[in-house]
Structures are given as structure tokens and as C-alpha cells.
Amino acid sequence: MTVSLPLVVTAAVLVGTGVYLMLERSLTRVLVGLVLLSNGVNVCFLVAAGRPGDAPLYDGSNAETMADPLPQALVLTAIVITLGTTAFLLAMAHRSWQLNGNDDVQDDIEDAAIRRLALADDVSEGYEAEGEDQPAERHDEDRGETREEERR
């Protein structure tokens, strides 16, 4: 199989820029990155189709010189699906802008909270205290005492 070098280079450049843009925080840039990426992938299908040829019509063209029609059909499907996804992501970016005044991807607050708890090393003590019904002693002895008093 012979491969067209310009197509390969085009696909590589599109995919490369697409991946770069997807690493951004702003959702619109991610979106542009995705569009580039998907176009790069579509060009990959043209590479997979092999040499170009005549239009693959049912009659009137010679099977020897005909282009492979299947990858074209696949690309069409992929393009339609990408169109839908792009529209959906645009809607999400718009909604995000409505809600936050920007379309940047946010960190998970829950994650941050757990990370902080882990740093402070409070969780395990807390749970031990609850599980074994003992007051947490190390950092807040006074609190533990008050709770014991309450229990009495």
C-alpha cells in the first residue's frame, strides 16, 4: 500500500495542535482542539483508504480505478457525530458562562476538601474516635474532655 505523505503530515499537525489546545482550561479552546483533532482523525481515514481513484458509483466506473468507498462512508458518519458533539459542547460552554461568567473547567471542590483533610491528617483520627467511641486526643484534648464530661 502506498501512502500519501502530505495527508499523513496534515493529520499529524491537526492532531498535534488539537491535543495542545485540549490541554487548555477554557472550554471553547478545548472545543476548537477537539474539532481539529477530529479532523486529523478523519484525514487518517483518507490515508487508510489507500490511493485515490474514480468516484465509486454503482455503474459506470471501473472497479480497478475506483476509490475505496467504505472509509468515505465511515468519515461521513464520524463527521456527523462530531457535529453533534460540538454542538453539545458549545451549549455546555454557554451554560458554564451563564453560571460562572466564564467557561473555564473547574476543579472539584470535594477533591480539594479531601486533599486538605489528608494533609491535615485529621480524618483517620476522627473516624477512630467515632468508631471506637473514644474522644480524639492528640490535637484537641480539651475538646475530648468536654465531650467526655457531657457523656457523664
Binding site: M1, L27, L34, L37, V41, L74, A78, L89, M92, V105
Partner: peptide, 27 residues
Amino acid sequence: VRAGTIYVVVNLLSSMLFLVAIAVTYS
């Protein structure tokens, strides 16, 4: 929307990878 953004982008990326796999397989 925040959770959905991560989900959508990750899955789109995997879809693209799937398409590449299909193109490679076909050729």
C-alpha cells in the same frame, strides 16, 4: 455542568482514539 465537562471531554478523546484504531485496523 462541571462534572459533565470532564466526562464529555474524556469520552470524546476516547472516541477519537477508537476512530484511529478503526482506521489502523481497516488499512
